[in-house]
Structure formats: C-alpha cells, structure tokens
Simulated assay, not measured.
Amino acid sequence: MTPAYSTFKDTRQHYEILDGLRGIAAILVVMFHLLETFALGNHEKQLINHGYLAVDFFFLLSGFVMGYAYDERWDRMSMADFCKRRLIRLHPMIIVGSVIGAFLFYFQDSPAFPGIHDIPVGTLLLTMVIGFTLIPVPPSMDIRGWAEMHPLNGPAWSLFFEYIANILYAVVLRHCNRIILSILTAVAAAALIHLAVTSAQGDVIGGWSVDPVQLRIGFTRLLYPFLAGLLLSRVTKPGNIKNAFLWSGLLLVVMLSMPRIGNSDQHWLNGLYDSLSIVLIFPVVVYLGASGSVEGRLSGVNRFLGRISYPLYIIHYPFIYTFVAWVSKYNITPTMESPGSLITCAAVAAGILAVNITLAWLLVKYYDEPVRKWLTGRFFKSL
C-alpha cells in the first residue's frame, strides 16, 4: 500500500492524487474495523461494508507504482539495491507496529480475550521480535487466539504478501512483456472472481492465517490487483482529467462504503460485487487519479493523506484489539436498542480514529521519514 518511488530522486511526475487516494482508503479501513464492533458479527449490518476491499486497492496501487518506479531502472540498479530500497520504505513502520501491538497487548484487560495474565512476558517479547521480521508465527504461537499469522498486529499479513509481490516483480514479472503479463492478469482475474462468488460469506475477506485455505485467499487477493496495477502502468498513458481527485476519491469512497449486496441466501451477489470492484472499478480509480493534478490546499491535503496512509494502516489494528476487549469487558452493546451504549461506543471509536491519525502523523514526521532518510543516505550515498 506504499509508494514504490519514494526513495528515488526523480524528475518524473509524482502522482499526488494517488497519495491522497491511498490516505482515503487507509482512513476507511480504520473506520471499517471500528464499525465491525457495532455490527456484532453480522456482515449485513456492517457500516462502510466493503472497507476490507481497501487492501485489494492497495495491492493494485502498489503494482502500478512499482512499474512506474522501477521498470526503467534495472539497467542501473542491482537486485540488492532493489531489496534495500523496499526494506527501507516498508520495514521501519513494521517494527513500530509490532511494538505498539505488544505494548497494548500487555495492558489489555478483558476476561474474554487472552492477555498478559495468560501469556508469559517472554512469549510476548518473542512474538514481538518475530513480528519485526514479518515472518508468520506458527499456530502454537498464536497468543491472541484469532488465528493470525501476526497476532500482535493483524494487518501485517498484507505486508507479508506485499513483500512476496516485490520478490515476484524483481525475479519474474519485470521480465514479462505486455502479452505475457496480460495473460497472467486474466488468469488471476478469473481466480479472483471464482473465489469471491463461491466463498461461504460471499466476499474476499481473509488471507491472514497460515493454513491452506487462508493462504489461497491471500495469494488470490494479491495476484490480480498487483498484476493489473503493473499492467496498467505499462499499457496506459494517464490523460488530463479535470477534478480527477474529486471523481476518483468519490468513486473510491462509494465502492468501499456500499452496503452488503444480497442476503444470506444470495452470498454470490456480494462476491460478484467484490470481484467486479477489484477487477473493473479499482483500475479506473487509479487511472483517474493518475490523470489529474492538484494545486494549493488540495495539494497539501493529498500530501498529508499520502504521508499518513502507511503509518495509519500499520499501527491502527492494535487499537482495534483494545477497543473490542473494552467492549467485551464491560458487556457494551452498541445498538439502537441501547442508545447510551451506542453513543459511548461511538465516542470512543471516534477518539480512537483521531488518536490513530495524530499518532500516524507524529510517527511519519519524527520517526519514519527521518529513519528512511538516514538509511537511504547510509546505503545509497550517491543519491
């Protein structure tokens, strides 16, 4: 979900609107996860119902900017250089996300969820350190019990697959011509549509566990959007569309906020919506975003959204764990039948969103960007 071109000094166009779209999607992911608590496990009642599709949008955006940033640089860049650039861009915040996850797990207090009273401190610290590496933990180390490959920071699963995409690009995909890439993209699209319309819940949700079913979901969610984004970067030339930020941003918000399609007897309808959103609409959103420009305050808004997008995404979920544990501990029922609980829960959720945005800004300004700048200077002295 991160810009692939950020560690290069380059005179080519920087797609500020794509930065803004990434930030919008990150905010909607946080809101989606907060509002899952209000749905009480009922997918059909979930507000910002398709917020989970932001991950698929991030994969597509990643493929697009990967091709834009690196396709023409391999004549002067080694494989080692590429790997170092990607580690510098992604890994500082992965470490912070794991630290925040361990910190909040230690202070989590809910009889319904595992906490430090159930898990030895040494096991917690070991899980945190493994989280630094992004290596999935085995089921025996699933200290939270949510069947996550990264139990201290669930969304790190998508960064695990992001690294896989980076490796696939560097080893294989950069050598593929447009015809081969088009064939691979079409096959991946068919696999994605099949997954979505045949899934038990009628969606593409999943990918965060180390088991065959979840790994299939993760690879299927990764391959089409990443391949499509890479292909889009090679076969299209962005146009000059007025109000591109407005139209692309509005379309993205609508697609991620759309209510559940169909009912419990028609899950395939929602699966069709998911797959067509990813296969057809998200490439249009990226093309629109790449085909416009912003000035003045809108330029500042896009830069802000772009800067906080990755930190916001990678740090927010430990706060979701804590929010869910709090709701469980005090047996809070955030429904219209319990207006007091609903208002309290909504106020806390809004506060968590504000805290996460603020923390993301502080981290990017005082940690992520300075660390990446230092590492870039250390390993790429010629830049």
Results as ranks from 00 to 15, higher is better:
183 I>V: 14
250 L>R: 04
199 S>D: 14
214 Q>G: 09
244 A>C: 08
266 Q>I: 06
229 G>T: 11
267 H>N: 03
185 T>W: 02
255 M>W: 09
241 I>C: 06
219 F>P: 01
252 L>C: 00
227 L>Y: 10
249 G>R: 08
254 V>D: 03
257 S>D: 07
181 L>R: 12
237 K>Y: 07
185 T>P: 05
226 F>N: 02
234 R>C: 05
180 I>H: 09
249 G>H: 10
186 A>R: 03
176 C>P: 02
202 G>A: 10
256 L>Q: 08
241 I>L: 14
177 N>R: 15
181 L>Y: 09
251 L>S: 10
201 Q>H: 13
211 D>R: 15
202 G>C: 07
178 R>K: 15
210 V>W: 13
248 S>F: 01
191 A>T: 05
195 L>H: 11
218 G>F: 06
247 W>T: 10
251 L>W: 01
174 R>A: 04
261 I>F: 11
207 G>L: 05
239 G>W: 05
260 R>L: 04
203 D>N: 15
247 W>M: 11
218 G>I: 03
191 A>S: 12
222 L>V: 06
185 T>Q: 05
223 L>T: 12
190 A>W: 04
239 G>A: 12
223 L>I: 04
205 I>S: 04
184 L>D: 09
222 L>Q: 03
240 N>Q: 13
195 L>K: 14
205 I>L: 04
221 R>K: 15
244 A>F: 08
257 S>I: 05
266 Q>M: 13
236 T>C: 12
188 A>C: 02
189 A>G: 07
195 L>Y: 06
251 L>Q: 07
232 L>M: 10
214 Q>F: 07
236 T>A: 14
212 P>M: 00
180 I>R: 15
246 L>W: 10
209 S>Y: 07
257 S>T: 09
255 M>E: 10
208 W>R: 11
257 S>E: 05
230 L>W: 01
